[in-house]
Amino acid sequence: MRLTCFALGLGLSLSPAAAFEPEDHLWIEGSSDQVLRILSTADLDVFTPYLMAFHAEHPDLDLDYTVVSSTDLYDEIHSGGVYDVVISSAMDLQFQLANDGLARRHRSPITQNLPDWAQWREVIFAFTTEPAVVLVATEYFDGLEIPQTRQELIAILRDNPERFAGKIGTYDVRDSGLGYLFATQEDRATDAYWRLSEVMGRLQPALYCCSGPMIEDVMSGKLALAYNVLGSYAAERLADQSEGRVQILRMTDFSNVILRTALIPATAPNPTEAGTFIDALLTIALRDGAEDWPLPPLSAATASGSGFGPIRIGPALMVYLDPLNRRTFLSEWENAILEQ
């Protein structure tokens, strides 16, 4: 079913876009009738402070904020949905939208301050750098070293199948746009990915659509380890409150860093206000660290932490979105994760 949606993007329309299911919704009443419609993958508990801050600056605008999955977001914009701002952590899908001409340019003094790697053609703007992390519940690692690399993780999982069976969580890459991006980028970066996937596959992993439930299950002790969680501040705060029961690990051999990006769809009814909103996000993104926001800033330090830099915004992101490549990748992934 998802495949058809991607095929749409490439002009292979097989079925009309289905109406999407909003996961959450927030309406902030402004003093005028002008409505800024925002379609986003960021949860309300993460994003509400940004909306409130913008509302304080621009009280005249109504803010209509809808949370959807990254694939639904892509489908909605691709089938002509009318929004002013689109925010997603699935960089590849954002890029596909921009490449297909579904986004418009925006230029301001703030966008000109952005580092080159944080924007593409003045169409896509990154406003966070977020690493992919591993969340572990330390109680499961009694008597074992906490793994720092994929090699160590593979060894520990392989050597203790009874301890970790059913206790490993990761994204269902068939469902999650972000999970698919993480997986494909790891496939490209390290050959340990497939060996790890095979080892995890033997442990009957739990598959998740999104980071939130995965974090919850690690906190509650249902999971021993969640692989490839988006390392936002929320996760860190939860880990801090757990008194050492939960740890956040950044694999030292390689870890993905994604950029959460915003763009203005070509159909935006209020492009000027949308630009103002993006500028406000970028101003927060370029802060010098003193302020406390739920999402990490655009930081070259985070970005270069893995030694690879953040995933580059560029046409290469389209490669794994190609239906043929996606079919191949998913079949390999299913072989590794599901059928062992």
């Binding site: 490449n99 053609r121 580059r312 560029g314 046409p315 290469a316 490669v319 794994y320």
Partner: peptide
């Protein structure tokens, strides 16, 4: 299988749509 490098080199020369 579309090679990743084919597209990443296009991205390397300029920010153009592909």
């Amino acid at each position: 299988e579309l090679p990743y490098s084919a597209f990443s080199m296009l991205g390397a020369i300029s920010e153009d749509r592909v």
